[in-house]
């Protein structure tokens, strides 16, 4: 069930950020998208997520059973949006609810993932009272709770210290080991080093081969 991006082109006005990019992202792997700002890392993630339409090109995501249902995609954003008036537990539980869990099931799943991301102390704290780093880990925990086959993460460790960064990397690795496709846009060397594959997007200034590589 790979994610296949084919001939993706996007321009913002005169500035072309993606120029016929093609890439295939396989199950069970972590792919790091690396480039300075402005080379279309976040844009590619948004296109894969369906949040943005490319000027040209297609993204194909096939469900595991080959059916027509689009597989679930979870999005970890660098802004780490949370429900500001809901507790950290509720925020993480939302991920489990999004895959059809009941409220009771989702609370159990949330507790497990909060522990996994080192957030036990803030489980009852409202989203708006969490620090930037805590929000980022809540967003990752929520994504883990969603157990989607595709995880798109845009700078998931931007606000984290080394210890928290390690927890996030471990969580993403566990998801990939469980079969998820993990695509990370990152400037973080530690994260990139943990990836199975790195795509340097600042070198893709011409239409790239279907299988872009490091």
């Amino acid at each position: 069930m790979p994610v296949v991006a084919t001939d993706i082109s996007v321009a913002f006005g005169e500035r072309r950020v993606l120029n016929g990019m093609s890439a295939t992202f396989e199950e069970g792997t972590i792919t790091a998208l690396r480039a300075p700002s402005g080379f279309g890392k976040s844009t590619l993630l948004a296109i894969i997520a369906g949040h943005q339409k490319p000027d040209a090109g297609t993204v194909t995501i096939t469900s595991a059973d080959g059916g027509d249902d689009t597989p679930g995609i979870s999005w970890i954003d660098q802004a780490s949006p949370v429900f500001p008036h809901r507790t950290a537990t509720d925020n993480v539980a939302m991920g489990a609810l999004s895959r059809g869990a009941t409220r009771e099931e989702s609370l159990t799943i949330a507790a497990h993932n909060l522990t996994r991301l080192g957030l036990d102390d803030v489980r009852d704290r409202a989203g708006k009272r969490l620090s930037g780093g805590e929000r980022q880990r809540v967003a990752v925990a929520r994504s883990m709770a969603a157990e989607t086959p595709v995880i798109l993460a845009d700078e998931p460790t931007a606000s984290l210290d080394a210890a928290s960064r390690g927890l996030v990397i471990d969580a993403l690795r566990a998801a990939a080991d469980a079969g998820a496709i993990v695509i990370i846009a990152t400037h973080d060397d530690t994260v990139a080093e943990s990836a199975d594959r790195i795509i340097r997007m600042d070198t893709l200034d011409t239409p790239s081969a279907p299988e872009a590589t490091a």
């Binding site: 609810l97 999004s98 059809g100 869990a101 009941t102 099931e105």
Partner: peptide
């Protein structure tokens, strides 16, 4: 589990 929010759960969450 089914994929996607159960409608009742989503309404309750809202």
């Amino acid at each position: 589990m089914t994929r996607g929010f159960r409608t009742g759960e989503f309404v309750r969450e809202h």
